[in-house]
């Protein structure tokens, strides 16, 4: 059985998104949360490239992906900056200590 490249990419996309969401739901470490977000965005980005390929507009798909990378990098930077501050102010990166805002 052979798997076509688009199918393989699709599986990777679904895998990345699935792992990302699973990680978001279960992890208790702030850095891991940011990594999970990265996985998710990479999956979505791959989906855009795939979409461009499937519709015969490879260049458009890739330019979308590059834009997403830029935006996503900024998100990661802000996320890491927040993490640094959290570590400084709260003293830990454990999400269980970030539950003061309730009810």
């Amino acid at each position: 059985m052979t798997i076509s490249i688009p199918t393989a990419v699709l599986i990777i996309v679904l895998g990345l998104v699935g792992i990302g969401i699973y990680a978001l739901l279960t992890t208790r470490h702030l850095i891991k949360v940011i990594v999970a977000l990265q996985l998710l965005v990479k999956g979505a980005m791959l989906a855009l490239v795939l979409a461009g390929h499937l519709t015969g507009q490879d260049d458009l798909g890739q330019s979308l992906a590059i834009t997403v990378i830029i935006a996503d990098t900024i998100v990661a930077v802000i996320g890491m900056a927040l993490a640094v501050q959290v570590r400084r102010v709260v003293g830990t990166l454990d999400l269980r200590s970030l539950t003061s805002l309730r009810r």
């Binding site: 501050q85 959290v86 805002l101």
Partner: peptide
């Protein structure tokens, strides 16, 4: 504020 920021961002 940091906690709110983290949750909002994620």
């Amino acid at each position: 504020a940091l906690e709110a920021g983290v949750k909002y961002l994620v």
